[in-house]
Amino acid sequence: MMGIPGNWRLRKQRYQLAGTRCRDCGTIHFPPRQVCPRCKNRHLSDFKLSGKGTVYSYTTIYQTTPKFQFFVPYVVALIDLEEGPRITAQLTDVDPEAVTIGMPVEMVLRKISEQGERGLIHYGYKFRPRLR
């Protein structure tokens, strides 16, 4: 389980889908990179992704760890973001049987998990059927 410092370091990418963009070849990356995997240079700028995308593929989770038991059954999807990157995320506010490949989705910020009753609440991106 990721601790408090790890969550703190990742807050921009988890809260805002903050990635990077290569100033030479224009490739957009998420998660953010130090080196562009396409053209290998280090000329990268911060880039906030729009959070709009479509479902590339998905699976429904029925057996999980205690941390996620309140969400069962839930869908984890591969999502093609409009700007290019393909990311993995949980879907929310949707019934598993309603999910289809190609479904338009958008990012929302939700609770991912809690470090028990006394610990930190982890927030991060999930995706839902597009509303906005």
Binding site: F71, V108, L109, R110, K111, I112, I121, Y123, K126
Partner: peptide
């Protein structure tokens, strides 16, 4: 609220709408 929602997550969406 859904199992992954609380006052913070809901506040964020309402505020995004207000900023838009």
């Amino acid at each position: 609220p859904g199992p992954d929602e609380d006052t913070i997550t809901m506040a964020i969406e309402a505020a995004e709408n207000a900023l838009m």
